[in-house]
Write a protein that binds this DNA or RNA. Structure first.
Lengths: 232, 232
DNA sequence: CGACATTTTGACCTAATTCAAGCATCGTGG
DNA sequence: CCACGATGCTTGAATTAGGTCAAAATGTCG
């Protein structure tokens, strides 16, 4: 557990003390990997020999159809796990969206360690809820609801059910950074790039958001955005 | 099974958790529950106090939006686990599609047992792949591809990638039972009931399937159906 | 048999896609 | 520092897959 658990010094936002360690040591336990943006950690179909915990940064998991259609199935943030597999091969590809720091465990290590498995179970239980939510989004929400939900994901204390008060403190503006291209967003939301763009423009038009830059969004009215997610 | 089955069927989606099955026994280990068809094991929003393993039968997990839109997020078969939660409440409702036999574990039992957690981890890793596959279906496949994929799920040794040979032994016909109404299928596939019906009619017209009954399908050409799933 | 529920079919409509330009934005090298 | 491609983003017009609404048909069961 010690190695999967985030140590207090790393809890802060990407502080990183000088320790220019690429691999802390050859601990039989976890080792740490670092990767830059747009690095593919593994491909769908690769032998599933390692399990990863994301210590810092963002990773996306996606699947491809032979004709090139892509679906981003999960977006992972700090503390989440990936690389788990039911069979001998990965069912998705994993690609970094930002520079990342990963804790890496050999599959057999995990198979042999009750502590690790316990941790994996806990993480997967939580992550599964995200997948359920995403299935609802993909199967039943309109383009506007999908984009609004996507933005709300990135607002801390996002109005999950208990967003109640429409004019309360939750209504103050909020800034967020996308870390994804329009194409990646589209592939995550099950839309085309054009539709994503159009919906964003519509949100600007309605005064709900403002674009500081392509990938930096100022949410003028968080509650207004939340109202558009379909969960109210 | 007979007792109290009514209780939780008090309608009102998710609102009140009227379960009172908890007093069956105080077995520290797993106990077994049986339920008939269309029984709701728990509602979205209920306190997540138990984890279930499906020993026999079929269960579906679904989420609802406040306006009534429903998305079936997972269909569970023998050996699969449900009722896991990241937080204190279930994020989905669980309803039986057939009579079922369930192994029930108190949440705290699981929290205290390395063996159980190990088992849960294993199951969730496998089930997660199903959710990924489903996200691909919901986000990127056409109505025809969705229905074809849905039917293929129920063909044993379904052509997952290695379906290669188009005229091989895999091409022989196959019978399957749906266990779901058109509405349930539609809610699983992210379509309307009319679209599901139309696609099924189209498959009949093309001679790929034949309806023995509403819920019994004879797949005349398994390979033909497989070709329509989008994975080739 | 007859009443109800589910499924199918038809006609029409709309949200989202597709195709095709135009625009920003950004990094590079002159 | 600015011109220049390159890349990614936005916008418009036309198309379409799937949804909606409204019967009709089929199945189910007392």
């Amino acid at each position: 557990m010690a190695y999967l658990e985030r140590t207090s010094e790393t809890m802060g936002h990407g502080v990183v003390a000088a320790r220019s360690v690429r691999e802390i040591a050859d601990t039989p336990q976890a080792r740490t990997q670092r990767h830059g943006q747009h690095h593919v950690v593994f491909y769908e179909g690769d032998a599933a020999e390692r399990i990863y915990e994301l210590q810092d940064g963002i990773v996306m998991l996606y699947k491809l159809l032979p004709d090139g259609r892509r679906q981003v199935v999960e977006i992972l943030t700090r503390g989440m796990i990936f690389g788990t597999a039911g069979g001998p091969r990965y069912d998705v590809s994993a690609e970094t969206l930002t520079p990342v720091r990963l804790a890496v465990h050999e599959r057999r290590e995990v198979d042999a360690s009750a502590v690790l498995q316990s941790h994996v179970a806990k993480c997967l239980m939580a992550q599964m809820e995200g997948l359920h939510e995403h299935a609802m989004l993909l199967g039943r929400k309109s383009a506007m609801e999908r984009v609004a939900s996507y933005f709300m994901r990135m607002v801390p204390n996002r109005g999950g059910e208990g967003c109640a008060g429409p004019v309360s403190e939750a209504c103050d503006p909020h800034d967020l950074v996308l870390n994804m291209t329009r194409q990646e967003i589209a592939d995550y939301l099950g839309l085309t790039i054009e539709t994503v763009s159009r919906v964003i423009s519509e949100l600007k038009r309605r005064g709900v958001i403002r674009l500081e830059r392509q990938d930096r969004i100022h949410v003028t009215r968080v509650c207004g955005l939340c109202q558009l997610t379909g969960i109210h």
